[in-house]
């Protein structure tokens, strides 16, 4: 089972996922980048840093 490295939510990994693909976490919304396929590894994708509404 793959889980979000930010919040621990279970991830629904699509069949045929590709290196570099960005997967959003369904719970916390963080974007996870696929950095390895065997074994499947995800890391936090770079986040936008601009002001998002303040």
């Amino acid at each position: 089972m793959n889980t979000c490295i930010e919040c621990g939510a279970e991830l629904n990994i699509p069949t045929g996922v590709m290196m570099g693909e960005i997967l959003p976490c369904p719970d916390c919304g963080v974007e996870l980048e696929v950095t390895n396929l065997t074994p499947l590894t995800v890391e936090l994708a770079p986040q936008e840093m601009e002001d998002w509404g303040e």
Binding site: E6, C7, P24, C25, C28, G29, V30, E31, Q47, E48, W52, G53
Partner: peptide
């Protein structure tokens, strides 16, 4: 409600 993206975080 604890989102890492969007405007309603």
């Amino acid at each position: 409600v604890h989102d890492k993206s969007g405007i309603h975080r």
